[in-house]
């Protein structure tokens, strides 16, 4: 039943609290309901009232009414504690699939302080923080990066039960935070562009990267290896899937090629990703060739970011 209402609720929240990069919590965005502790509190109040009635004790009545009033006031205080808080999403760094995304959120007080503000993606795992009056606090939340491409952070839950814990004021915000997720790097042989090679025959300084020139031996098959290098004979002998490995002796610029790899798209992108990182670390200039895209031969951070971006967005850009 609850699942069936979920989309209705989501749509309603989406209309009521439209996405925005900077949100001030106000009466339109704050919901408030009693918590389970609030239920216990009500039960205690009821017991106290029974004692007061049965013993006709004015002081016990007084205590009951005092606690009832405090309970009612707690609504105002809980609401006040969270209202006026300004949230905005910070810049998030791109990560690779499988790594946690660090999303930074800024909490800003525009007037009074806010205590025990809990933030998180679901109500079970929340980070708590205080925001002092007229101060700015930054909170980091993590999300698992599951899929390559643009990742949109889910709606953020902001809540607080301060001061008494008997009411919970919360909101459900979309701060329009997006992160680019790169493919997961997977090690393997270097997928070099076949055939056409630039002609820079250098003075014998040989790159010993994987290549096509020299047979090196056999190794176990990994996803993404080209079918052309399969050692079918070994397979037919029942020795499992083996791949023939070659190394490249050339000294010219490298061009990583999507088509040089086998396997499905994600596996190929993962292998390319690994080599983009690897070559960038070696500060070796390289080019990247994807269907419909060919980068310049270059090195450096900007080039690496550009290549990773292409890999991340390959085939997903609408």
């Amino acid at each position: 039943m609850i699942e069936r209402f979920e989309p209705v609720w989501q749509r309603w929240v989406g209309r009521r609290i439209p996405p925005a990069s900077r949100v001030e919590l106000d009466h339109r965005r704050i919901f408030i309901l009693p918590t389970r502790v609030g239920g216990t509190y009500a039960l205690i109040l009821f017991l106290l009232l029974l004692v007061s009635i049965n013993y006709q004790n004015s002081l016990a009545y007084g205590l009951t009414f005092l606690m009832l009033s405090v309970g009612v006031l707690a609504i105002l205080h809980t609401y006040r504690n969270i209202s006026g808080l300004v949230l905005s999403g910070g810049h998030a760094r791109s990560v690779f699939v499988g790594e946690p995304v660090q999303l930074r959120l800024r909490l800003e007080s525009t007037g009074h302080g806010h205590q025990a503000i809990a933030l998180g993606w679901d109500s079970e795992q929340l980070e708590q923080t205080d925001v002092e009056a007229e101060r700015l606090v930054e909170v980091g939340l993590t999300l698992p990066a599951l899929k390559r491409g643009w990742m949109r952070a889910p709606r953020l839950r902001v809540e607080s039960v301060f001061p008494l814990g008997i009411f919970r004021a919360w909101s459900w915000l979309d701060l329009e935070q997006t992160v680019l997720i790169y493919p997961q790097p997977v090690a393997g042989t270097m997928p070099l562009l076949q055939g056409v090679q630039p002609h820079a025959e250098d003075d014998g300084h040989a790159t010993t990267g994987p290549g096509v020139d020299d047979y090196q031996g056999l190794r176990l098959w990994q996803p993404g290896d080209s079918m052309k290098r399969m050692h079918w004979k070994a397979w037919s002998r029942g020795q499992g899937l083996m791949v023939k490995e070659f190394s490249d002796l050339s000294g010219h610029d490298l061009c990583l090629d999507f088509m040089a790899l086998g396997g499905d798209i994600e596996e190929r992108l993962s292998r390319l990703c690994y080599w983009v990182l690897e070559l960038s670390q070696r500060q070796q200039p390289f080019a990247l060739k994807l269907p419909g895209f060919l980068s310049a031969v270059d090195s450096g951070d900007a080039h690496r970011e550009d290549c990773l971006r292409q890999l991340a967005l390959y085939g997903v850009r609408a």
């Binding site: 029974l50 009635i53 049965n54 013993y55 006709q56 004015s58 009545y61 007084g62 009414f65 005092l66 009832l68 009033s69 405090v70 009612v72 006031l73 707690a74 205080h77 001061p163 008494l164």
Partner: peptide, 30 residues
């Protein structure tokens, strides 16, 4: 301080309740 403030703010409402809440006869003897 916050707790004292909360109680102080609750006093008017408590007095109102004290004044108006109907006093019932004991429901059972204790």
């Amino acid at each position: 301080r916050l707790s004292a403030k909360l109680l102080l703010q609750a006093v008017p409402l408590m007095l109102l309740l004290f004044l108006f809440f109907p006093r019932l006869e004991p429901l059972w003897s204790l």
